[in-house]
């Protein structure tokens, strides 16, 4: 288990329980189950209390937790017959974006998402979930395919942002993102988006301009990273806590602002503590959001999405 800095008191309790059990295993005739169970209960209460009122910055840390389930885990857990489709037909296949045909509750769909990887090797291979233009162009191609064959599109968003690289700029990072957002807005099929971790700026919008957008309880979605915002507006990257608070990047604030449609509850202690439960909860959310759109015609789906964005922001957050 990887503990975050604010989880330190918890790690001490859990560590003690673990020590006690280890001691009992090596010492015959010693019964520690009562004490260990008491510690377990204490740990559970501590965990519940910690996660009840996470600050915006703590949510950023949870959203970026390395043990959190990633796109691939959700695809494995929620879809059957997943068939990867690769490449942008112009330059390369971007491994930070994965996508393909799959069945969701037996219904054929197109699923696309950012994948961060889960160990050093796969993180490098996935470029830490930071897509290059090829990634967005692959997504455009897959969305287009889905549109022509009347398949709903499900996108899973988890990216620190689009990759800021020399080649990415040369090959039109901005243009690729703009076209991907445009493609989202021109689909005649349902488009459902779930922010499962980090929704990093334009790199996220390119996938998440959807009919319905859901966010996991402790995920974030922001115009800029708190560190980036702090270094520009506070002239001090260490002010990320203040920036995170000011940016209103939590699922709870964004629901109030009418930017997202649904908050998906996470297991106590975050998705990283019980990935299976988190994946299941996301599955239920996708099912209900798809249900809301069932029976709508192509024209209605297009108009629904367009209206949603044109009207967005008419109410502020009176704070």
């Amino acid at each position: 288990m990887n503990y975050l800095d604010f989880e330190k008191p918890l790690s001490e309790i859990e560590g003690k329980a673990e020590e006690l059990r280890a001691l009992a295993r090596t010492t015959s005739g010693m019964d520690v189950s009562k004490e260990a169970e008491a510690l377990d209960r204490k740990a559970e209460t501590a965990l519940r209390d910690l996660y009840k009122n996470l600050t915006a910055w703590q949510k950023c840390q949870v959203a970026r937790h390395p043990d959190r389930p990633h796109c691939k885990d959700y695809i494995d857990g929620l879809f059957t017959e997943y068939t990867t489709l690769a490449g942008d037909r112009a330059f390369a296949d971007d491994h930070s974006v994965m996508g393909g045909l799959a069945r969701f509750n037996d219904r054929p769909v197109m699923v696309i998402g950012h994948e961060k990887g889960n160990d050093t090797k796969s993180r490098i291979e996935r470029n830490f979930g930071m897509a290059r233009p090829e990634g967005y162009r692959k997504a455009i191609r897959l969305m287009d395919l889905a549109d022509r064959f009347r398949l709903p599109v499900i996108t899973l968003v988890d990216t620190p942002g689009a990759y800021p690289g020399k080649g990415a700029e040369e090959r039109g990072q901005a243009e690729a993102i703009a076209r991907s957002t445009e493609k989202c807005l021109s689909l005649g099929v349902p488009l459902i988006s779930v922010v499962i971790g980090e929704g990093g700026s334009g790199g996220a919008v390119a996938f998440a301009t959807a009919n319905r957008v859901a966010m996991l309880e402790h995920s974030i979605y922001s115009v800029i990273s708190p560190e980036g915002c702090a270094s520009i507006l506070w002239k001090d990257a260490e002010k990320m806590r203040e920036a995170a608070e000011a940016l209103r990047l939590t699922a709870q604030d964004l629901a109030k602002l009418g930017i997202i449609d649904k908050i998906v509850p996470e297991p106590v202690g975050g998705a990283q503590r019980a990935p299976k439960d988190a994946i299941e909860a996301v599955g239920k959310a996708i099912e209900s959001l798809l249900g809301e759109l069932s029976g709508k015609s192509r024209a209605e789906l297009l108009a629904d999405r367009r209206r949603k964005y044109l009207e967005m922001g008419s109410k502020g957050l009176a704070a």
């Binding site: 703009a178 957002t181 989202c184 919008v205 301009t209 922001s222 115009v223 000011a246 602002l257």
Partner: peptide
């Protein structure tokens, strides 16, 4: 904040 980011789809 996010309302500025949402100008990307809005202007599109």
């Amino acid at each position: 904040g996010m309302l500025s980011l949402m100008q990307m789809p809005r202007t599109t």
